[in-house]
Amino acid sequence: MNIPVVFLLVVLGCSQAEGVSKCELRDLVLTELQNLQDGGLSLDPKVVTTRIVCHAEKSSNFNTSAVTTQGSDGGSSSNRKKRNTMEDMLEIMESEGMRTTTVQPKKTVKATQKWTFYGIFQLGNLLVCTDEVSTDPEICNYNCNTLIDDDITNDIRCLTDIIRKLLKDGFNQGSRFMEMIRLIYDSECDGFVYSDYFQECQ
Protein backbone atom coordinates (compact mmCIF):
# COMPACT_ATOMS: atom_id res chain seq x y z
CA MET A 1 0.00 0.00 0.00
CA ASN A 2 1.50 3.34 -0.98
CA ILE A 3 1.70 6.43 1.21
CA PRO A 4 -1.14 8.45 -0.42
CA VAL A 5 -3.58 5.56 0.12
CA VAL A 6 -2.51 5.18 3.76
CA PHE A 7 -2.93 8.92 4.28
CA LEU A 8 -6.40 8.83 2.72
CA LEU A 9 -7.47 5.98 5.02
CA VAL A 10 -6.22 7.85 8.07
CA VAL A 11 -8.11 10.99 7.06
CA LEU A 12 -11.30 9.05 6.41
CA GLY A 13 -10.98 7.20 9.72
CA CYS A 14 -10.49 10.41 11.69
CA SER A 15 -13.39 12.14 9.98
CA GLN A 16 -15.84 9.57 11.39
CA ALA A 17 -15.39 10.85 14.94
CA GLU A 18 -17.69 13.86 15.20
CA GLY A 19 -17.59 16.19 18.17
CA VAL A 20 -18.40 19.57 19.64
CA SER A 21 -16.15 21.86 21.60
CA LYS A 22 -16.24 22.10 25.36
CA CYS A 23 -17.27 25.75 25.16
CA GLU A 24 -20.02 25.12 22.61
CA LEU A 25 -21.43 22.32 24.74
CA ARG A 26 -21.32 24.56 27.82
CA ASP A 27 -23.43 27.21 26.10
CA LEU A 28 -26.02 24.71 24.84
CA VAL A 29 -26.38 22.88 28.17
CA LEU A 30 -26.42 26.07 30.23
CA THR A 31 -29.28 27.48 28.16
CA GLU A 32 -31.38 24.33 28.67
CA LEU A 33 -30.69 24.23 32.41
CA GLN A 34 -31.59 27.90 32.79
CA ASN A 35 -34.91 27.04 31.16
CA LEU A 36 -35.44 24.31 33.76
CA GLN A 37 -34.67 26.78 36.53
CA ASP A 38 -37.06 29.32 35.03
CA GLY A 39 -39.68 26.55 35.03
CA GLY A 40 -39.49 26.40 38.82
CA LEU A 41 -37.04 23.53 39.37
CA SER A 42 -34.38 23.96 42.04
CA LEU A 43 -30.87 23.83 40.58
CA ASP A 44 -27.84 26.01 39.98
CA PRO A 45 -27.45 25.99 36.16
CA LYS A 46 -23.74 26.80 36.18
CA VAL A 47 -22.87 24.13 38.73
CA VAL A 48 -24.93 21.44 37.01
CA THR A 49 -23.57 22.49 33.59
CA THR A 50 -20.05 21.94 34.92
CA ARG A 51 -21.03 18.46 36.09
CA ILE A 52 -22.68 17.51 32.79
CA VAL A 53 -19.95 18.85 30.51
CA CYS A 54 -17.31 17.15 32.65
CA HIS A 55 -19.30 13.91 32.34
CA ALA A 56 -19.30 14.33 28.54
CA GLU A 57 -15.56 14.94 28.53
CA LYS A 58 -14.75 11.93 30.72
CA SER A 59 -17.18 9.50 29.10
CA SER A 60 -17.00 10.39 25.38
CA ASN A 61 -14.31 13.06 25.02
CA PHE A 62 -17.04 15.19 23.39
CA ASN A 63 -17.43 12.63 20.60
CA THR A 64 -21.03 12.78 19.39
CA SER A 65 -20.78 9.37 17.69
CA ALA A 66 -19.30 7.46 20.65
CA VAL A 67 -20.78 4.04 21.41
CA THR A 68 -19.59 1.90 24.33
CA THR A 69 -20.87 -1.25 25.99
CA GLN A 70 -20.98 -2.32 29.60
CA GLY A 71 -19.08 -5.49 30.42
CA SER A 72 -20.44 -8.41 32.39
CA ASP A 73 -18.66 -7.11 35.50
CA GLY A 74 -20.73 -3.93 35.35
CA GLY A 75 -17.82 -1.89 34.05
CA SER A 76 -17.94 0.13 30.87
CA SER A 77 -15.53 -0.14 27.98
CA SER A 78 -14.73 3.50 28.66
CA ASN A 79 -12.88 2.36 31.82
CA ARG A 80 -14.47 4.84 34.20
CA LYS A 81 -13.14 5.03 37.75
CA LYS A 82 -14.94 4.31 41.01
CA ARG A 83 -18.50 5.61 41.06
CA ASN A 84 -20.14 7.60 43.82
CA THR A 85 -22.60 5.79 46.06
CA MET A 86 -26.23 6.88 46.07
CA GLU A 87 -25.64 8.66 49.39
CA ASP A 88 -22.64 10.47 47.87
CA MET A 89 -24.80 11.62 44.97
CA LEU A 90 -27.52 12.98 47.25
CA GLU A 91 -24.95 14.97 49.23
CA ILE A 92 -23.26 16.28 46.07
CA MET A 93 -26.54 17.26 44.44
CA GLU A 94 -27.64 19.18 47.52
CA SER A 95 -24.27 20.96 47.64
CA GLU A 96 -24.78 21.89 43.97
CA GLY A 97 -28.14 23.50 44.67
CA MET A 98 -30.32 20.65 43.37
CA ARG A 99 -33.32 19.74 45.50
CA THR A 100 -35.26 16.52 45.05
CA THR A 101 -38.44 15.28 46.72
CA THR A 102 -36.77 12.22 48.25
CA VAL A 103 -34.52 12.44 51.29
CA GLN A 104 -33.05 8.94 51.11
CA PRO A 105 -32.24 7.12 47.87
CA LYS A 106 -33.74 3.72 47.22
CA LYS A 107 -31.50 0.70 47.04
CA THR A 108 -31.17 -0.33 43.43
CA VAL A 109 -30.85 -3.74 41.88
CA LYS A 110 -27.98 -4.29 39.50
CA ALA A 111 -29.23 -4.67 35.96
CA THR A 112 -28.75 -8.11 34.44
CA GLN A 113 -28.87 -6.89 30.84
CA LYS A 114 -25.88 -5.42 29.08
CA TRP A 115 -26.07 -1.67 28.54
CA THR A 116 -24.94 0.15 25.42
CA PHE A 117 -24.19 3.85 25.83
CA TYR A 118 -24.67 6.31 22.99
CA GLY A 119 -23.47 9.75 22.03
CA ILE A 120 -21.76 12.65 23.68
CA PHE A 121 -23.43 12.03 27.06
CA GLN A 122 -23.25 8.23 26.80
CA LEU A 123 -26.97 7.80 27.45
CA GLY A 124 -27.96 4.19 28.07
CA ASN A 125 -30.15 2.21 25.71
CA LEU A 126 -32.05 0.42 28.48
CA LEU A 127 -33.31 3.76 29.75
CA VAL A 128 -33.60 6.22 26.88
CA CYS A 129 -33.57 4.68 23.40
CA THR A 130 -34.44 1.72 21.24
CA ASP A 131 -31.96 -0.62 19.56
CA GLU A 132 -31.71 -4.37 18.97
CA VAL A 133 -31.64 -4.98 22.75
CA SER A 134 -33.83 -2.23 24.17
CA THR A 135 -37.38 -2.03 22.82
CA ASP A 136 -39.21 -0.28 25.66
CA PRO A 137 -37.14 2.54 27.18
CA GLU A 138 -38.49 4.31 30.27
CA ILE A 139 -37.78 7.88 29.19
CA CYS A 140 -37.01 9.90 26.01
CA ASN A 141 -37.87 6.95 23.71
CA TYR A 142 -35.55 7.86 20.85
CA ASN A 143 -34.02 5.58 18.28
CA CYS A 144 -30.47 5.15 19.59
CA ASN A 145 -29.05 6.13 16.19
CA THR A 146 -30.38 9.66 16.69
CA LEU A 147 -28.01 10.01 19.64
CA ILE A 148 -24.86 9.38 17.62
CA ASP A 149 -25.18 11.95 14.85
CA ASP A 150 -23.61 15.41 14.94
CA ASP A 151 -26.89 17.08 15.93
CA ILE A 152 -26.95 16.91 19.73
CA THR A 153 -30.35 18.55 20.15
CA ASN A 154 -31.98 15.22 21.06
CA ASP A 155 -29.10 14.32 23.38
CA ILE A 156 -29.46 17.55 25.36
CA ARG A 157 -33.25 17.32 25.41
CA CYS A 158 -33.10 13.76 26.72
CA LEU A 159 -30.53 14.64 29.37
CA THR A 160 -32.63 17.56 30.61
CA ASP A 161 -35.66 15.24 30.70
CA ILE A 162 -33.67 12.94 32.99
CA ILE A 163 -32.70 15.84 35.25
CA ARG A 164 -36.28 17.17 35.28
CA LYS A 165 -37.60 13.76 36.30
CA LEU A 166 -34.96 13.44 39.02
CA LEU A 167 -35.77 16.87 40.46
CA LYS A 168 -39.52 16.25 40.38
CA ASP A 169 -39.63 12.64 41.57
CA GLY A 170 -36.40 12.35 43.55
CA PHE A 171 -34.52 9.10 44.07
CA ASN A 172 -37.69 7.04 44.11
CA GLN A 173 -36.93 5.70 40.63
CA GLY A 174 -36.29 2.36 38.98
CA SER A 175 -32.84 0.79 38.90
CA ARG A 176 -32.20 1.72 35.26
CA PHE A 177 -32.89 5.38 35.89
CA MET A 178 -30.66 5.48 38.95
CA GLU A 179 -27.85 3.67 37.13
CA MET A 180 -27.85 6.47 34.56
CA ILE A 181 -27.72 9.09 37.33
CA ARG A 182 -24.79 7.23 38.91
CA LEU A 183 -22.90 7.50 35.63
CA ILE A 184 -23.60 11.22 35.29
CA TYR A 185 -22.53 11.78 38.89
CA ASP A 186 -19.23 9.97 38.44
CA SER A 187 -16.65 10.78 41.11
CA GLU A 188 -14.18 11.95 38.44
CA CYS A 189 -16.21 15.15 38.11
CA ASP A 190 -16.47 15.95 41.82
CA GLY A 191 -15.16 19.34 42.91
CA PHE A 192 -14.91 21.10 39.54
CA VAL A 193 -15.75 24.82 39.66
CA TYR A 194 -17.48 26.53 36.72
CA SER A 195 -15.06 29.46 36.41
CA ASP A 196 -11.99 27.22 36.51
CA TYR A 197 -13.31 24.38 34.39
CA PHE A 198 -14.45 26.72 31.62
CA GLN A 199 -11.55 29.14 31.92
CA GLU A 200 -10.63 28.79 28.22
CA CYS A 201 -14.20 29.77 27.25
CA GLN A 202 -14.01 33.27 28.69
Rank of each mutant, 00 (worst) to 15 (best):
L147C: 06
F121H: 02
Q173M: 06
T116G: 00
M86T: 05
S95F: 07
S42Q: 13
M89L: 11
K107P: 07
Q122Y: 03
Q37G: 04
K106Y: 07
N172L: 10
L126N: 02
F171D: 01
D151Y: 10
N63T: 13
K58R: 10
V103P: 01
E96T: 04
L90Y: 08
V53L: 03
V67I: 15
F192A: 04
T50A: 06
V193K: 13
Q70K: 06
K46W: 04
E57F: 01
R80L: 15
R51V: 00
F7S: 07
D131V: 09
E32G: 07
K107I: 14
L9A: 13
C189F: 05
G74T: 08
L33H: 05
E179F: 09
T100Q: 04
D38V: 10
L28K: 10
L25Y: 04
E94M: 10
A56H: 03
R176F: 15
N84W: 08
L28E: 10
T69K: 10
T153I: 06
F117H: 03
G71W: 10
I184Y: 02
T85M: 11
K107W: 07
F62W: 02
T68R: 04
I152R: 01
G124P: 01
G39A: 13
E138W: 02
D155N: 15
Q70S: 12
D44G: 02
L36Y: 05
T102D: 14
N63V: 05
S78E: 15
I162W: 00
R51Q: 11
I148G: 03
C189R: 03
F117R: 00
T160H: 09
I120V: 11
I120Q: 01
L127D: 02
V5D: 14
M89C: 11
G174T: 09
Q34E: 14
G39L: 09
K168S: 14
C201S: 08
N145E: 11
D161K: 14
L41C: 07
V103S: 13
N84G: 12
N154Q: 12
E138G: 01
N84P: 09
P4C: 09
T85H: 09
E32H: 12
E18N: 09
D149Y: 06
L126W: 01
A56F: 03
C23I: 07
K110R: 09
D73H: 08
Y197V: 03
K106R: 14
H55M: 07
K106C: 09
L123I: 13
V6M: 14
N63Q: 14
V48Y: 04
